[in-house]
């Protein structure tokens, strides 16, 4: 029994940590690039966006996973979208009520979380096939991985932008930063 428990814990930890490194949504799966490119002009925005996406991911993953046995296969996508859109609306309302400045900064990109491929992707590829608890940890890990990744991009852009390289704060800066980061990570992997 003890051994089984340990195994379970390890499994959960694996599901959690894979989102951060092995299957990082931004650098490895290359999903959800729209917010990663658009809101990474400051670290504050990136963190706010990361928390919002993580919240939606955790809840949509748990709810979808708990419904996985009653969802008819043919209409699973509309069901996912209803659940995801509801949680995004909840985040939007909460943000407007408790963090109005952040809500103003992020603007249209909060409602756009609905069409973020990470969330849809995790619902389809993971939550609809795994138990509630593992899906929850998967959501947490993916959310954290996403937050870390866009914070990295935002930090680099903000620092370089402040140093006077204006182009880093404009859209090309986002693409350049992301490209170099991704290239660097792949290079590191190859050399291993």
């Amino acid at each position: 029994m003890v051994i089984k428990n340990n195994k379970n814990k390890e499994g959960l930890l694996r599901e959690f940590s894979k989102g951060i490194f092995r299957q990082n949504p931004i650098f490895v799966s290359v999903l959800g690039l729209c917010p990663a490119l658009a809101v990474t002009t400051s670290l504050e925005n990136a963190l706010g966006m990361g928390v919002a996406v993580s919240f939606v991911l955790v809840f949509s993953n748990s709810i979808i996973s708990s419904m996985r046995n009653i969802l008819p296969n043919k209409i699973r996508i509309p069901c996912f979208i209803v659940v995801i859109a509801s949680f995004v609306t909840i985040v939007e309302l909460l943000m407007a009520a408790f963090a109005p400045l952040l809500a103003k900064q992020l603007g249209i990109f909060v409602p756009l979380i609905v069409v973020n491929c990470i969330i849809m992707g995790r619902a389809e590829a993971f939550a609809s096939r795994n138990s509630v608890l593992t899906s929850l940890f998967d959501g947490l890990g993916m959310g954290l991985g996403f937050t870390l990744a866009i914070s990295c991009v935002a930090l680099i852009r903000q620092v370089l932008g402040r140093c006077g390289i204006l182009v880093m704060l404009l859209p090309p800066g986002a693409l350049l930063t992301l490209g170099f980061l991704m290239g660097g990570l792949n290079l590191m992997k190859k050399e291993k």
Binding site: V82, I90, L94
Partner: peptide
Amino acid sequence: RFSSVLFLICFFCATMLAFVHGVTEPKI
């Protein structure tokens, strides 16, 4: 079957949203 499942999910989500909206509206 499909429409009843989808209806149930929508109903559940709408209730949840109505609740959150009620709580946050005065604050916003």
